[in-house]
Amino acid sequence: MSKEIEGADRVFKALADTSRRKVLDLLYAENGQTLTALCEQLDMQRQSATQHIEILISANLVSVVWKGREKLHFINPVPIHEVYERWVRKFEKNRLGFLYDLKVQLEGENDGKK
Score class of each variant (00 low, 15 high):
S2P: 12
E4T: 15
E4W: 01
E4G: 02
I5Q: 07
E6L: 14
E6N: 08
G7Y: 03
G7P: 02
A8C: 03
F12W: 10
F12V: 15
A14R: 07
A14K: 08
L15H: 06
A16L: 14
A16H: 13
D17W: 09
D17G: 07
S19V: 08
V23K: 02
V23Q: 04
V23I: 15
V23G: 00
D25I: 11
L26V: 07
L26M: 10
Y28P: 00
A29H: 06
N31K: 03
G32D: 06
Q33Y: 02
T34S: 10
L35Q: 08
D43G: 06
Q45R: 12
R46D: 08
Q47K: 08
S48Y: 09
T50H: 02
T50W: 02
I53T: 08
E54Q: 13
L56Q: 02
L56H: 01
L56C: 04
I57D: 04
I57V: 14
A59D: 03
L61D: 03
L61C: 05
L61Q: 04
V62E: 02
S63D: 03
V65F: 09
V65W: 05
V65E: 11
W66K: 15
G68I: 06
G68H: 11
L72H: 09
H73E: 03
I75N: 02
I75G: 04
V78Y: 07
E82Y: 08
E82A: 08
E82D: 14
Y84F: 15
Y84I: 13
E85I: 10
E85Q: 10
R86G: 06
R86I: 11
F91I: 07
E92Y: 01
E92S: 04
K93P: 01
L96G: 04
L96T: 11
L96M: 09
F98A: 11
L99A: 06
Y100D: 12
D101Y: 00
L102W: 02
L106W: 05
E107I: 00
G108A: 04
G108E: 13
G108V: 04
N110I: 01
G112C: 06
K113S: 08
K113I: 14
K114V: 12
